[in-house]
Amino acid sequence: MALLAFLAAGPALLAPPVTLLASAAAAQTEAPALAPSQSPAEASLGRPAASLSQSGMRSRLGRQQAEALEAHITTLHRTWHITTAQEPLWGRLTGAMRHGAVQLDAAYARREQQNAGANAVEDLRAYALVQQTHASNAADLLAPFGSLYDSFSPAQKHIADETVRHFTDNALKAPR
């Protein structure tokens, strides 16, 4: 699960309880994203989706959060040395990441909106819905990340293993 949080997270993206990775420069390339009605599973099957552009994502997430996600995506692209041949697989993964970020942001916004006079039971229910959204988004990353990872060279796999292991080790040490 920590791996999926790593893939879905970007620096300062959705600050409450998600621990996020350090940021990088603005995105250099934009991979295709999911349409709001398209699931990551559909995208991993190669079904076409309308593009969730960076500007469209910015209006849903806010400029700072969208830029942080794009910086995180750029960092992973550069760190993992994604090849031209791997771009379609990378696009499916980043589409799922962008879609998940929008979904999670909406869940946090609903919780904030509904929490104005919420009692403890309502607050816990809203929190549970945010966590369910996070878990669902994490599960939606498995197929596209697995396909991309399977396409990696041994050197890329080593880098991805180390990158993810470093993140998960730090996430486990973080205060709860």
Rank of each mutant, 00 (worst) to 15 (best):
L124G: 11
Q114G: 02
A126Q: 03
A128G: 14
L129Q: 13
L104K: 02
A143E: 07
T133L: 10
E112M: 06
E112T: 12
A107F: 12
A118Q: 04
Y108G: 00
L124I: 08
A109R: 02
Q114E: 14
E112R: 01
A116C: 07
Q132S: 13
V130F: 07
A138G: 11
V130E: 10
T133M: 14
L141N: 08
A107M: 02
N115D: 14
P144R: 03
G146E: 12
A120H: 00
L142Y: 03
L129A: 14
A118W: 11
L124H: 13
A128M: 02
A118L: 06
D140C: 01
G117D: 05
A126E: 13
N119A: 01
A138K: 04
Q132C: 06
A107R: 10
V102C: 11
D105Y: 03
H134K: 14
Y108N: 03
L104M: 04
T133A: 14
S136L: 07
L142V: 15
A120F: 07
L142Q: 07
A143F: 06
G146R: 00
Y127E: 15
V102A: 08
V130Q: 07
N137D: 09
A106S: 06
V102L: 03
Y127G: 13
R110P: 00
R111N: 11
A109C: 01
Q131W: 08
L141T: 10
E112Q: 10
R110S: 13
A126C: 09
A107C: 05
V130P: 11
G146P: 04
A106C: 02
Q131M: 13
N115Q: 05
Y108M: 06
S136M: 04
Q114L: 09
N119I: 11
R111F: 12
Y127M: 10
A106Y: 06
E122C: 05
Y108F: 13
A128Q: 08
R125P: 01
P144N: 05
N137C: 15
A139C: 04
A139H: 14
Q132M: 10
L104S: 07
A116L: 11
D140S: 07
A143K: 10
Q132N: 12
D123G: 12
A106R: 01
A128L: 11
P144D: 01
F145S: 12
D123P: 00
E122G: 13
E112D: 15
Q132F: 03
R111T: 10
L129K: 15
R111V: 02
L104W: 05
Q114S: 03
Q131I: 02
V121Y: 05
D140W: 00
A118G: 15
E122H: 08
A118F: 03
A107P: 14
Y127L: 14
L141E: 13
G146A: 12
L129I: 00
L129D: 13
V121A: 05
A107D: 05
Q114P: 00
A126P: 01
G117K: 10
A109T: 02
N119G: 15
L104T: 10
L129C: 15
R110G: 00
D105R: 01
H134Q: 15
D140R: 00
Q103H: 05
R110V: 08
